[in-house]
Structure formats: C-alpha cells, structure tokens
Design a protein around this nucleic acid. Structure first.
Length: 420
RNA sequence: GCGAUCGUAGCUCAGUUGGUUAGAGCGCCGGUUUGUGGUACCGGAGGUCGCGGGUUCGAACCCCGUCGAUCGCCCCA
C-alpha cells in the first residue's frame, strides 16, 4: 500500500559499515596478525568491551581532556559509571591484576577488536575503530621491547606494506630522566613563550612534551634547539636504550631515531615508538606503543614493568588495499540453471561441489536466457550450465580443463540419478 | 570544540547567465538477437534535487539556517 512511513535511522557518526574489498583487506590484516603472533608465541586473550570508568580514568592520569571529553562513558542501571574501552592496555592491566596473571609473567598476550573514542571523524580516524594489540607484561628486559618490535616489523612485511613505513624510535628514560628533561623543556620554552603558537603556550602548562611534535611552524623553529633527552638520561636508561637498539640491529629491524617522539601519558618510560607512513593524510601512525612501567601502580597493583603496542586495523587495511595485496573473488564454479526444471539438480550439484571444497555460486533466478551470461560475468574458473533436453537434465561444462574434469566426475552420478 | 569543501536515481556523475515534463553511464527487471552463447539492440522500474525557511513571475542553481559526509586543526591512550 503506502511506502514505509518512518525514516530509516542513520548510522552513528564515526561508525563504519565495512564491505567488499575493504572488508577483505580488514580480514586479511587480522588473519595475518593472528598468524604472526603465534610465531612469536603471544597468547590470545579476549577482553570486555567495557570496564568501570575508573580503569581508564586512573590509568590515563592527568590528561583530563582525554578522560572528560573523549571517552564514551555512561551509567548503567545501577548508577555505575562505565566506559567503552578507548584502548586495550588498561583493561589488560586490570585483568592481569584481578586474575592473578602474575603467575604467568612474563606474559605475552595479543588481542584485537573494536575500541571507542568520542572524537571528530577524519581520514583513518573513527569513533568506533579497530586495533590489533600486543603486550608483554612483567618483563623488565630490553629483549621484550625488541621482540615486540620485531613482531610488528614482521607483520608489516608479511602484509606487504613495510616499504612506505618507517619505525621511529625514542627513549623517554626512566622516571628521573624524564622529569629532568621535562623541567628543562619547560624552562626552555617558557623563555620563548611569547613567540610560541597559542596552542603551545597552552601546552606549556598542560603537556609540555607535546610542543615537540607541534605542526605549527612558529613552534618548529624552537624545537630544533630544544633540550634533548639524551642529555638527561641516567646511565641505566642509556644502557637500556642501547640494548634495545642493538637488539633491533641484530634482529634486522630497521629503525630511525626520532628525538621529538613523545607519549602524551605520564606512565610511559624508556622505549617509545611509532611505525609511521606519509600515505594516510594527517593520521600517519600505523602502529604505536612503548614501555609503560608506571601503569600497574596507578591501578593499585605492584610495580610491574611492561611494554606493548597497538595497530589501527583500518589504517593497515588502507595501506594493504593501496598496495593491491588483496585478491578477492576467487570463485571456482558458477552454475547456471537455464531451465527451472533443472533447479533441483542444480541444488544437488551446488551442495556436492561445495562439500568437495570448491567455492561455488548458482544463478537460478531472472530470465533463464540471461543466466548463462550472468554466470560468465562472475569470472568463475568454470561454468556449469544445466538445461532440459528431451525431458532429461543435461549439463554443459566450460573452463580450465583440469577443473572441468574434476567437476564432471562429481556431477555425473547426480545427473544420472536425476534422469532415472 | 574550531575551520574548509561537498550533499541530484541503488552506484559514479552531468545539469549553461535562475526558465517548460531533471539527464547519462553502470547496475537491476523484461524482451529481441545470438544459440555453447561473456555480443548487440529495444523497452521498463527507480528521484520529496539532504531537510527547513527566504529572494523571485519562476529555484537543483541565489541567500540564511539545519542535518549529514569528507578533509584538516585541537587532542591522540
């Protein structure tokens, strides 16, 4: 009668309906990650998609902007404040503490799935997005950092996108080194306060390290001569970073020192790194991570040294798509039922071919005369056409010889049975 | 939160200085041709021109608002 009276609801801003080639690329990234993480013996974990808000609020610490404005938080029916996970690390840290996973330390775990951040969407940035994640918890040794980076490096290589991506590496030193550096940066930038961008004048109070990766040319002029972390590193911190870089060289992982690479959060210590590309607009970080030795304590646990990374699946999938790494639609057989009286025979053949491991589609609707053409357009490696001749089902086969012979064997008994 | 660009058929897009009934290609449906055939042709369905207001004799086109998308800034766990 009338058309649908109500309007179709719209998707939530920043969510994606992934389909076709993009979905194939997405799945390819996840499958490759699953394979590689097994090679490195990272154990699979499944984590809740939401936690008590506390879990993220306490681990994120003083970055109030992030906590108050960029998390998907809500109250449940009991009045408890919950938050859709904006990252994996805090939840995994919580699980490590509440489940007694210390007994497995050093624990290597990997997971992947959706994350949520209340941000303005742009290229490679969504409100629901997806990440791969790998963590080594309870490992103080630089070898853990090396292993993690080697895994990330191998992942990129196996995805065939390593060429346009570089590993930027830095150290933030231990707690004391980091504090001394931070203080020196504040002094330095405060002396040029008036000449900095408005944003950076603000950052001077909130998050001075971030001035280092400001995009504003007014700031960049001063960044080059800013105090370097290297001048503040303790002997221990120097040794640690030296062991990481030596390990990377030994493992054949290419890296580049990036002294202005910092982390926004205070719990990061020592190694910080990003795999970066210039092919994704403003969102060039494809894998990011570092050592978070201060995190467990902020959740009320014992001092536990840990290191991890996360990778944006959408961003990796975009690079994979660009590189043309995905071959989709490897259809083996297309069946054209050119007479409806052969439909049952078609069903039997379809089932039989699929059971024997072939990917098969069947065309049995629309104009019978056009079904063969549709089957031909599907680019299948072989076409089976079914027709009725003299009250009997007859089949026609076309395609690569080997496959056609195999199909002929499989369908002969079915057609004989149909015609009995 | 801020800025720029863009919203016309299922998809990709035309649409002249504002001027009759808003078009094409692809896709979809039907038919003719071909008859072991991925061809060609004919026809058809499908549009509140994002939405709301304004200017005008007249708006897809100009103006305002709004919603949405894209890209960037801020932020980036």
């Amino acid at each position: 009668m009338s058309k649908t009276p109500s309007k179709t609801p719209q998707a939530i801003r920043g969510t994606q309906d992934i389909f076709g080639a993009e979905a194939e690329a997405f799945a390819h990234v996840v499958e490759t990650f699953e394979r590689v993480r097994r090679l490195y013996r990272f154990r699979r974990v499944e984590m809740p998609v939401f936690e008590r808000t506390e879990v993220f609020a306490r681990s994120l610490g003083e970055t109030t902007d992030v906590v108050s404005k960029e998390m998907y938080s809500f109250e449940d029916r009991g009045g408890e404040s919950l938050t859709l996970r904006p990252e994996f690390t805090a939840g995994i840290a919580r699980a490590y503490l509440t489940n007694g996973w210390r007994q497995y330390a050093p624990l290597k775990v990997a997971t992947h799935g959706p994350l949520f951040r209340y941000e303005r969407p742009q290229k490679g940035r969504y409100r629901q997005f997806h990440q791969l994640d790998a963590e080594v918890i309870g490992a103080a040794e630089p070898q853990a950092d090396v292993e993690l980076l080697a895994m990330a490096d191998q992942l990129l290589k196996e995805l065939g996108i390593a060429d346009g991506v570089t590993l930027q590496l830095n150290t933030l030193g231990d707690g004391d080194s980091r504090e001394a550096w931070r203080a020196a940066l504040v002094d330095y930038f405060a002396a040029h306060r008036a000449e900095l961008s408005e944003d950076s004048q603000d950052r001077l109070e909130r998050n001075p390290l971030r001035i280092l990766d400001s995009k504003d040319p007014r700031d960049r002029a001063f960044v080059a001569d800013a105090p370097k972390i290297d001048d503040f590193l303790s002997g221990e911190a120097q040794d640690f970073f030296g062991a990481v870089t030596a390990g990377l060289d030994a493992a054949g992982v290419a890296w580049a020192r990036e002294p202005s690479l910092v982390r926004g959060l205070d719990y990061y210590r020592h190694t910080a790194f990003e795999f970066v590309t210039d092919r994704l607009g403003a969102q060039g970080t494809v894998i990011g991570g570092g050592r978070y030795d201060g995190l467990m304590e902020s959740l009320g646990g014992p001092a536990t040294r840990a290191v991890g990374w996360a990778a944006g699946i959408e961003r990796l999938a975009m690079l994979v798509g660009e590189a043309g790494q995905i071959a989709i639609d490897a259809l083996d057989v297309s069946i054209a039922v050119e007479d409806d009286r052969a439909a049952v025979a078609g069903q039997r053949i379809l089932a039989q071919l699929r059971r024997s491991g072939l990917s098969v589609d069947m065309i049995a609707s629309g104009s019978p005369k056009k079904r063969f053409d549709k089957a031909a357009k599907s680019n299948a490696r072989a076409i089976v056409s079914l027709n009725i001749d003299n009250e009997k089902v007859v089949s026609g086969l076309r395609g690569s010889t080997e496959l056609v012979e195999r199909i002929a064997e499989l369908i002969r008994p079915i057609i004989e049975a149909e015609n009995r």
